[in-house]
Amino acid sequence: MSNLDAVLQILSWSLIISGSFFVVVGAIGMLRFPDFWARLHAASVTESGGVILLLAGMCIQAGFTLITVKLMIIGLFLFITGPTSTHAVANAALVSGLRPKSLSTHPNSNGLEDDKR
């Protein structure tokens, strides 16, 4: 029994540590990336990887209680609203005429013409 407990402890610790790592990496990316469109992706590292790992680690720490249910509801909610608000920001930026600085690979396809697939 204590053996299983130790395994769960180590598992949740590693989940929380890697979650914290992704949170910090996302923030570093938001600071380092050169323009808005790249920063979107840095923010989504925090919003998917960091949130999932941290909440999963806390779920294991809480065990089978009401707290786990609450954590899962928070996770579900962030799972739905995170992409939605990211999409809303990106869409608003596109509508207002903000474009990526360098479309390096395909200079012709700025997304407003038909794809040549």
Binding site: F22, G49, S104
Partner: peptide, 20 residues
């Protein structure tokens, strides 16, 4: 996540943006 983390932490930041 791991792929984007590599992009963020690499010193040269190999960004190839595209809208498609």
């Amino acid at each position: 996540n791991i792929a984007v983390t590599k992009t963020i932490l690499s010193p040269t930041m190999p960004i190839r943006q595209n809208l498609f």
